[in-house]
């Protein structure tokens, strides 16, 4: 077995960290530009129009919208709160909230480049499906209690 390399000193450790961050800088900046564009182009009232009144279909739509959008979870709470007030079901809003933070189409290129393409595909697809399951389960438990 190969002998493990000696620990790097502070200078080497700092250079290595700086290189890794520099490597990811263009991807991170690109993602932030995309998020800023989406935020400016899509009015918040637009999302409520997309829902039907069928819970399962709405949870799918909620998960889809949450996957496409990105940003601070705080924004998703405010949007989700507005959706609830406008009559969108709790299952759909929950799927939206969960997908908002767990699925990232906008961040996908960054995730694929830094963590691996296959990893990013499997993680995002499974998170999309899980958002619907988590929403159904959460609302079911809340209604039970």
């Amino acid at each position: 077995m190969a002998k493990e390399k000696a620990r790097p000193n502070l200078k080497q450790a700092t250079i290595k960290a700086a290189r890794a961050l520099y490597k990811s800088l263009p991807i991170l900046l690109g993602v932030i530009v995309l998020i800023s564009l989406a935020n400016a182009l899509i009015p918040k009232s637009f999302y409520t129009l997309l829902f039907s009144k069928i819970p399962l279909l709405d949870s799918f739509i909620g998960s889809t919208i949450g996957s496409i959008l990105a940003g601070n979870p705080m924004t998703s709470y405010i949007l989700g709160g507005e959706m609830l007030q406008q009559g969108v079901s709790l299952i759909a809003v929950t799927a939206f909230l969960v997908a908002w933070v767990t699925v990232g189409i906008v961040q996908f290129p960054a995730e694929a480049m830094l963590l691996g393409k296959r990893f990013a595909i499997v993680r995002n697809v499974s998170a999309f499906v899980l958002a619907i399951i988590v929403a159904l389960l959460t609302v079911f438990i809340v209604n039970l209690i």
Binding site: G81, V98, V122, R123, S126, A127, L130, T138, I145
Partner: peptide
Amino acid sequence: YYFGLLFVIVLTFVMIIASVFQGIIV
């Protein structure tokens, strides 16, 4: 404030469990 204490507790709990499931699936 937006969704109530019960909803947040249940969702948090379900999401922690789901995270392990997701890890296994991935």
